[in-house]
C-alpha cells in the first residue's frame, strides 16, 4: 500500500506493507538513517521520533498507523541553515554523547520533555529519559546537556 505523511515539514509518500515499521519506513524508505534502531524491542529508545508532537518509539509503530501524521525525526532538529539546533548544540558542548548511537533518541525524547516542561529539574530529566538507554552510560552529561538547553546552569548538578 502507499503510505503518505509529513516528515520534517515535507510531504512524503512511499510503499509499505502492513507490517512495515515506522522506523523501517523512515530509514529504508526515505533514507532518513538518523533514526537508529538499537534493540528493535521498544526498550532502548534510540528510535524515538515525534508523531504529531508526541515522542514514540518508531520501531513499535506501524508506518501505516502514522499515515497522515506529522513526523519529526532527528534530521528535523537542526536549524533551517543547517547549523545544530539548541538541544543538539548543548549535547555537543556538554559532551552528551560518547559513541553517539543513542543520541538521536535522547535528543528527541529530551525535546518532547522541554516542549512540555521548559525548565525541568535534573531529577525530572532523568525520570523522563528512563526509556532511553545509553550503553556508554553517559547519562550525567546527557542530563547536563538537556538542562543547559533549557537555559539552566548545568554545571551545578551533582551526579546521582
Amino acid at each position: 500500500m502507499k503510505v503518505s505523511m509529513t516528515v520534517n515539514g515535507k510531504a512524503v509518500s512511499g510503499e509499505a506493507e502492513g507490517r512495515t515499521l515506522l522506523s523501517s519506513f523512515l530509514r529504508d524508505g526515505l533514507g532518513l538513517t538518523g533514526t537508529h534502531v538499537g534493540c528493535d524491542t521498544s526498550q532502548c529508545g534510540a528510535c524515538v521520533v515525534h508523531v504529531d508532537g508526541k515522542a514514540v518509539k518508531s520501531c513499535t509503530v506501524f508506518a501505516a498507523d502514522a499515515a497522515g501524521a506529522n513526523v519529526t525525526t532527528i534530521e528535523g532538529m537542526a536549524n533551517p541553515d543547517g547549523t545544530l539546533g539548541t538541544l543538539q548544540q548543548a549535547f555537543q558542548d556538554h559532551h552528551g554523547l560518547q559513541c553517539g548511537f543513542c543520541t538521536p533518541g535522547m535528543v528527541m525524547s529530551a525535546a518532547a520533555l522541554l516542549a512540555d516542561n521548559p525548565k525541568p529539574t535534573a531529577a525530572e530529566v532523568r525520570h523522563h529519559l528512563e526509556g532511553n538507554i545509553c550503553r556508554c552510560t553517559g547519562y550525567h552529561n546527557i542530563v547536563k546537556a538537556v538542562l543547559a538547553a533549557s537555559g539552566q546552569d548545568a554545571d551545578r548538578i551533582a551526579a546521582e
Binding site: G45, A55, V56, A112, L113
Partner: peptide, 9 residues
C-alpha cells in the same frame, strides 16, 4: 506505566 514514549502509544 512503561516510559514516556510507551505511554504516548
Amino acid at each position: 506505566i512503561g516510559d514516556p514514549a510507551v505511554r504516548n502509544r
